[in-house]
Design a protein around this nucleic acid. Sequence first.
DNA 1: ATGGCCCTTGGTATCGTTACCGGGCGGGCG
DNA 2: CGCCCGCCCGGTAACGATACCAAGGGCCAT
Lengths: 338, 338
Amino acid sequence: MSTARKAPTMADVARLAGVSPMTVSRAFKRDSSVSETTREAILQAADSIGYVFDSTASNLRSQKTDFVAVTIPSINNANFAETLRGLSDGLKDRGLQILLGYTDYDIAEEERLVEQLLRRRPEAIVVTGGRHTARTRRLLENAAIPVIETWDLPDAPIGHVVGFSNAAAVRGMVDHFVARGLTRIAFIGGDADRDTRGTDRREGFIAAMRAHGLDATRLIAAGAPPISMREGAAAMGRLLDTLPDTEAVIAVSDLSAFGALTECQRRGVAVPGRISIAGFGDYEIAEVAVPALTTLNPFPREIGSRAAGLILDVLDGRQTTPARVEIRPELLIRASSR
Amino acid sequence: MSTARKAPTMADVARLAGVSPMTVSRAFKRDSSVSETTREAILQAADSIGYVFDSTASNLRSQKTDFVAVTIPSINNANFAETLRGLSDGLKDRGLQILLGYTDYDIAEEERLVEQLLRRRPEAIVVTGGRHTARTRRLLENAAIPVIETWDLPDAPIGHVVGFSNAAAVRGMVDHFVARGLTRIAFIGGDADRDTRGTDRREGFIAAMRAHGLDATRLIAAGAPPISMREGAAAMGRLLDTLPDTEAVIAVSDLSAFGALTECQRRGVAVPGRISIAGFGDYEIAEVAVPALTTLNPFPREIGSRAAGLILDVLDGRQTTPARVEIRPELLIRASSR
DNA sequence: ATGGCCCTTGGTATCGTTACCGGGCGGGCG
DNA sequence: CGCCCGCCCGGTAACGATACCAAGGGCCAT
């Protein structure tokens, strides 16, 4: 209809329906004591004048926003998207809405983001990773809402944790290769410390190799994280050029692992005949690729749904102490490493 | 520190800094007239008691939320993620934050979502697609904020549009195959009408084939949209079983196209020797796959950034009439079809 | 010296909803 | 028959920031 007129309020609806604003308010809440007939009359009146409930006023008065803040490193990552999905689905029945921000794998950006999100007064906040700036940590500690760190198992959590050890997961992968008799193993990852999970994986690789008494210097830095298929392919190219006797490659993610695989295909290097390849994340590409890629499934969807469940438990008072939910990534041995 | 104490307000900060709440308010706004010394004193006082600005109160009083609502079909889709990225980056300098919801490719779900989002009083709303329920349309028309439909070119737009014709894009793909002398062309897509863009693409395929006087019945329904790599592979399997003389395949997306490609590899069917394959979306996989996949780049990032620019233009009064920004998808002919 | 302007700061009312308290009315029970 | 309780509804104040109006002080020009 018109666009200039001021938006109707509950008072307008109340006048039209012949009730008090208070009753209109009740009619818009789920479990409130309004007779069914008046409720319907009110909703009908509201609809007729195009009234749309105003959360901003409700939020202020009730001191509740029904927001859950979430930070992820990147929107464009199937794993984090799955976590988000698990979170979103677990929260929407309760009318909780996700307020999302992405950090671009940068903890300084995370700090800005967290402050911006806290201004909106969310009921809980979920962050990815267990490493933060001092100020971020302080902000989260003072926020007086449930804080959940995910995708990691920090030594000193801020509040709750739903995650796994990236280092331990990679160790399992190294063990797998060693058990197969492969010893000249390389690691392809990003080159900065920005991606803390990627760094943890690389360090887990180094520690695991040393534990086996093996050379842990075949490290290929493939560019600024997050590295993707193209970077994975380029990194594999350099690896084949400089260390042609490499027998196995562990990539920081399935995407880079797949890129590495395609580079082998372009060069006629047999996988797994001459080189075995493994990734991380159990992306769909890992299963569909020919050969299918050995990988680790960190159950990203479950991370989200467990976090959502935890939030509801805390808000309902069923959980009163900091929880530490450990996810156990599953090693999926596929054709690319056997 | 403590978690039980009530959160400090501007009044607390004002008391501590020895100024009025009004001045504290100004200190937290960017371009307001406060002397630099008092501003710093105020911010320092705020920090010392852990004050965090409360947007909920600000939103109500100023009737501004700095939210831009966005609906996308799925979080877990690289194309929409790119659009989101373009939007987010284009809006964040202005302090506008995205309020995201996903519809799961369902316009009934979209209706619920749009209402929920409008309750938060966003300054603008961006929706994916040009088909909506009648009520969604009414809600958007009455919202008195800029409405932008994307990823489509609707005949009767609600407000602004940033998109392209899915049907026309596929026509270009058909033309490409026909020009190469291929006539027995199949289309792999989802089986329902839920994914309106997928449906548009299939219909564009049929229309284009008929325009060339070719048989447009090689249609493989690959399951509930969005179909992905696995479904693409399965669909290709069925196609090879039932219509083995097919010369070319157009898939509704690169993901399903890649799945189809892998099925060919598993069966020893040469691509493009015996079958040419094309996808849609210019996902990274299309470029990295061996052979690289012919595809269409719809410039998803640009859709987002153009939408963001449009929002700023409208909010600043530089754009006063409904805009129709047409994106021209680029046909990328790669090894899989030559 | 006085008027006027800019910069900075304060006071008051208000955004639209809901927490809280209170009251009318009808029915069940002693 | 009276009392009590539960259901349904209304009035009032308040959530915390800011729009709006106003004023004090410093500085320049007349």
